[in-house]
Design a protein around this nucleic acid. Structure first.
Lengths: 196, 196
DNA sequence: CACGATACGGAACGCAGTTCCGCTTTACAA
DNA sequence: TTGTAAAGCGGAACTGCGTTCCGTATCGTG
């Protein structure tokens, strides 16, 4: 039952050499395109950049969202793994929580349109939302519970709405210099502090 | 120079009777459609409901967003006008701020997909975003400044990011029973409190 | 080298918002 | 009442998106 890492069909090593080459080209092209045009870069553009037809994209990544996941998987994983590390390193669980949230926000804000894509509609980006959740929810829960156990924050907020709230606050943070998502997230976290 | 209320071209009383009738039918149909299918209801559906062609929509409302604005204008205005009233009535500016925010969040959460439409992409819903801003920003500024002047909250947060943050937190609040936008907004406001 | 499995390309589909233009309806003047 | 220009209308058509499909090309093996 433990089959983590097979979701997009992109990690099962295929037999044919050209297939693997195309898949890598696609990942590179997508990363490029996301960087310069945001996560909303049209599938056709990505295919063109990679020098393949659109059909090839869909053989490797069943859906646009799966391509996005594949591109950012490493960074999401890194963020997930940073949680326990911060908890072990930081002076207090609350400090670890704050640092981890910063990490997450930095990640979201840096990728143009990622936050928007991850929230909002469910038709096209459902898988993306799901992946983020299943990867980050356990970590976030752990941090939240540790900080609650140490009495630094209130204990009546689940990780899910907290994570979604952070994600939501990051929507549109790029492309608007007057909107500072980091600050608002900090305010939200400040609102969590126990007011004894 | 003071020509408020002409923006969508929907309030300039047209000469022809049928035109006015169609415009009203369109508004009713849109309100209906938004209620049952969310603000994302396709233009064609709305036109069909109203018994007109799509072209008719675009003569009355240059853009989908303008139709959305026209449908919700009254409620946005009501929200804007409630600001000063609450400020005058409430025991403290902070209480007024909290109540006003509640009002705004209720409004956003109630209309399926409105928050999502208002934030996020700018191509299609730019005018919507703009309208909300120009209507609510002054009110929000007033409330924030009053609460800051009374020493109840910190004074270093502009109304714009605050409003956007609230709007963002409401994204996807409908259609997800596990996500309580009201609570998160409350947390955000709590984070605003002065910590002397 | 031949052949079957595998992968590829890109035309085509469905569904958005929006535009365009030939036709209808209205309002007003004669 | 009726003629006529202006205003309004309907819906086919255009652009752009994600996705599907299928005839063709390529790969790896016997």
């Amino acid at each position: 039952m433990n089959d983590s890492g097979q979701s997009a069909g992109s990690s099962a090593r295929s037999k044919r050499k050209d297939a693997r080459r195309n898949q890598q080209a696609l990942l590179d092209a997508a990363a490029d395109a996301f960087l310069s045009s945001g996560v909303d870069a049209p599938v056709r553009d990505i295919a063109a950049r990679a020098g393949v037809g659109v059909g090839t994209i869909y053989r490797h990544f069943p859906t646009r969202a799966d391509l996005v996941i594949a591109v950012y998987r490493h960074q999401v994983d890194a963020c997930a793994e940073a949680g326990p590390a911060l908890l072990a390193a930081g002076p207090t669980p609350h400090a670890a929580l704050v640092r981890w949230v910063d990490l997450f926000v930095d990640f979201l804000v840096t990728k143009h349109g990622l936050a928007t894509a991850m929230q909002g509609d469910s038709t096209c980006f459902g898988p993306l939302h799901t992946y983020f959740l299943e990867r980050l929810l356990p970590v976030c829960t752990q941090l939240l519970e540790a900080a609650a156990a140490s009495g630094e924050i209130r204990s009546d907020l689940d990780a899910y709405p907290f994570l979604r709230g952070i994600g939501n606050l990051c929507v549109g943070a790029d492309s608007d210099p007057h909107y500072d998502a980091r600050r608002l997230v900090a305010l939200l976290v400040a609102g969590l502090r126990r007011s004894d």
